[in-house]
């Protein structure tokens, strides 16, 4: 019975936790950057231009792909194993204090929706044809116009709000679960960690939600 870190469930979960926390950091910065939508079209486009014209963006994107893939692969591998650990489910679901939170019970399902959303999101905004605009004499993609055009569709706005809502639930459990998996958890810090995790998830989720709703209502 030889122990292998990466073959063990704890090893896989710790890889998933590190990747998950880095992705959590990414979505927060992404949400904050997108808040420039409220400042104005030029500022939003300039931010986007500065970001994609930086040569380090390729390294950052490669890192993001690696984090996404390792998080998703470990999540799927662990979920398959977990599914086989109980072949027959209970006739009645747990209730009261013995019932786990909704977000913690459906992490893989939230993750699957978020993964599909990320692909659609990239196709819609990153890989779509964009008009050009000039800011301070520099020609750049008019990402702001694309965002405004896309968010005129109520179907897209509703879909976006649902997806980032699921992201909020995913982060609410995911952040404190990742910290526990990495060993940062104690009975004294329990309520603080869980509370901060929920706040983190909903700050990111509500921040993202505010953007399409603002565009839909005010453009």
């Amino acid at each position: 019975m030889k122990f292998s870190y990466l073959k063990s469930t704890i090893g896989k979960k710790q890889v998933m936790a590190v990747a998950g926390l880095l992705l959590a950091g990414f979505v927060l910065t992404h949400m904050l950057g997108n808040m420039l939508l409220f400042v104005g079209a030029d500022m939003y486009n300039l931010y986007s231009y500065k970001l994609i014209s930086n040569p380090l963006i390729y390294l950052a994107e490669a890192g993001l792909v690696a984090f996404f893939l390792s998080h998703i692969v470990m999540g799927i591998v662990l979920s398959i194993r977990n599914k086989s650990s109980r072949q027959k489910s209970y006739a009645v679901a747990a209730s009261g204090e013995k019932k786990a939170s909704w977000s913690s019970r459906f992490m893989i399902h939230q993750g699957m929706v978020i993964a599909v959303f990320v692909v659609l999101h990239l196709l819609t905004f990153k890989f779509a044809d964009k008009q050009q605009t000039t800011v301070d004499g520099v020609v750049m993609d008019d990402l702001h116009q694309l965002v405004v055009d896309v968010f005129q569709s109520p179907v897209y706005v509703i879909g976006y709000v649902i997806a980032v809502g699921l992201l909020a639930f995913h982060l609410s459990h995911g952040v404190h679960s990742a910290l526990s998996t990495l060993g940062f958890y104690s009975e004294e810090k329990k309520s603080k960690i869980e509370c901060l995790s929920a706040i983190y998830g909903w700050v990111v989720g509500l921040g993202f939600m505010s953007q399409p709703i603002y565009v839909y209502l005010f453009y």
Binding site: F3, T9, S85, A100, S104
Partner: peptide, 23 residues
């Protein structure tokens, strides 16, 4: 390490930190 390896060999799942165990 030894106890974890045996736990996995016996067919138990991984922890998702839901807290239902403690409850």
């Amino acid at each position: 390490k030894k106890m974890l390896a045996k736990m996995e060999e016996e067919g138990f799942g991984a922890c998702s930190n839901t807290g239902s165990c403690s409850a």
